[in-house]
Measured scan of single mutants.
Amino acid sequence: VTLFVALYDYEARTEDDLSFHKGEKFQILNSSEGDWWEARSLTTGETGYIPSNYVAPV
């Protein structure tokens, strides 16, 4: 499993987005949709879409 870490804070803009804080780690569930990836936060357990340019591989 490839994990990603948040480089910046992000505040959700829609109900499908996932808010997160810098340093939070994610498991990517689906990265085939372009710039927005479906991810699960390893901190909160919540699932939603995150901007791929806000995260980097651990």
Rank of each mutant, 00 (worst) to 15 (best):
V1F: 13
V1R: 09
T14N: 15
G48T: 01
P51S: 05
T43A: 11
S32P: 10
V1H: 15
G34H: 12
T43H: 11
Y54V: 04
D16G: 15
D9Q: 05
K25N: 07
V58D: 10
N53W: 14
E24C: 06
G48F: 03
V55H: 01
L29E: 05
E38R: 12
K25S: 06
W37R: 02
E11V: 14
A6C: 02
S31E: 09
A12D: 02
T47H: 08
E11D: 11
E33R: 15
Y10S: 02
A12F: 02
S52I: 07
S32E: 12
T44E: 02
G45Y: 07
S31N: 13
K25R: 13
F20P: 00
V58Y: 14
R13K: 13
A12M: 04
T47A: 08
A39F: 03
T44Y: 03
Y54I: 05
T44I: 02
S32H: 11
D16P: 04
E24N: 06
S19E: 04
H21T: 14
V58E: 10
H21I: 12
Y49G: 04
E11H: 12
S32C: 10
S41R: 15
E46F: 12
G34V: 14
T44G: 03
Y49D: 03
A6K: 00
W37F: 08
F4H: 06
V5D: 02
F4W: 15
E11L: 11
I28D: 00
G23D: 06
P51V: 02
E24T: 08
F20K: 00
G23T: 03
K25V: 15
I28M: 04
F4I: 03
V55A: 04
Q27N: 08
A12N: 05
T2C: 11
Y8A: 09
L42Y: 07
H21Q: 12
K22S: 07
A39P: 00
L18W: 04
G45N: 09
D16L: 14
I28A: 03
T14L: 10
V55F: 09
T2M: 13
V55T: 04
R40V: 10
T43Q: 09
V55E: 00
I50H: 00
R40E: 06
N30E: 07
K22E: 07
E15M: 12
V1P: 13
I50L: 07
A6G: 04
Q27V: 15
S32D: 11
E11K: 12
V1L: 14
V58Q: 07
L18H: 02
K25W: 14
Q27T: 11
G34M: 13
Y54S: 09
Y8I: 07
E11S: 11
G48Q: 01
N30A: 08
V5R: 05
K22T: 08
Y8P: 00
N30F: 08
V58S: 07
E33G: 14
A6L: 01
T14P: 03
K25A: 07
D35W: 12
F26H: 00
Y54E: 01
F20I: 06
T44K: 04
Y54G: 05
A39S: 03
T43K: 12
G48P: 00
S19D: 04
S32W: 10
I50Y: 00
K22V: 10
L3C: 09
D35G: 13
T14M: 11
V1C: 14
P57G: 05
R40C: 07
S31Q: 14
L18F: 08
T47S: 10
N30G: 09
A6H: 00
V58K: 04
Y8N: 06
Y8C: 10
D16F: 15
Q27S: 08
G23M: 03
F26C: 01
D16Q: 14
V5H: 05
F4P: 00
L42N: 04
Y54M: 10
E15Y: 10
S52M: 09
V55D: 00
K25D: 02
A6F: 01
D16E: 13
D9C: 08
R13D: 09
G45A: 05
V58L: 13
W36S: 06
S32M: 13
W37D: 01
Y10M: 03
R13G: 09
D16K: 15
S41Q: 05
L7I: 10
A12V: 02
S52L: 05
T14E: 09
S31P: 09
L3W: 11
K22R: 11
E38P: 05
Y8R: 09
N30C: 08
G23I: 01
G34F: 12
T44W: 03
A39I: 03
R13N: 09
S52C: 10
D35A: 12
G45M: 08
A6Y: 01
S32Y: 10
Y10D: 00
A6P: 00
F26Q: 00
D17Q: 15
E38H: 14
I28S: 02
A12T: 04
H21W: 10
K25G: 04
V1A: 13
W37T: 03
A6M: 01
T44D: 03
T14A: 13
T47M: 09
N53H: 12
K25M: 15
S19T: 10
Y54W: 07
P57V: 08
G23P: 00
E46G: 09
H21V: 15
A12P: 05
G34C: 11
A6W: 01
S41M: 06
D35H: 12
W37Y: 08
T2Y: 12
D16S: 15
L18C: 02
A39G: 05
A56S: 09
P57N: 05
G34S: 14
I28P: 03
T2F: 12
Q27Y: 15
I50E: 00
I28F: 04
S32R: 10
S41A: 07
D35Q: 12
K25C: 11
W36V: 08
G48V: 02
W36M: 13
N53A: 14
P57H: 06
I50T: 01
V1I: 13
I28Q: 02
L3D: 05
L7C: 07
G23V: 01
G23K: 02
E24M: 06
Y10L: 03
Q27R: 09
T44L: 03
E46N: 13
A39T: 02
S19I: 02
T43R: 14
Y10K: 03
E33D: 15
D17E: 15
R40Y: 12
D17N: 10
R13L: 12
T43S: 13
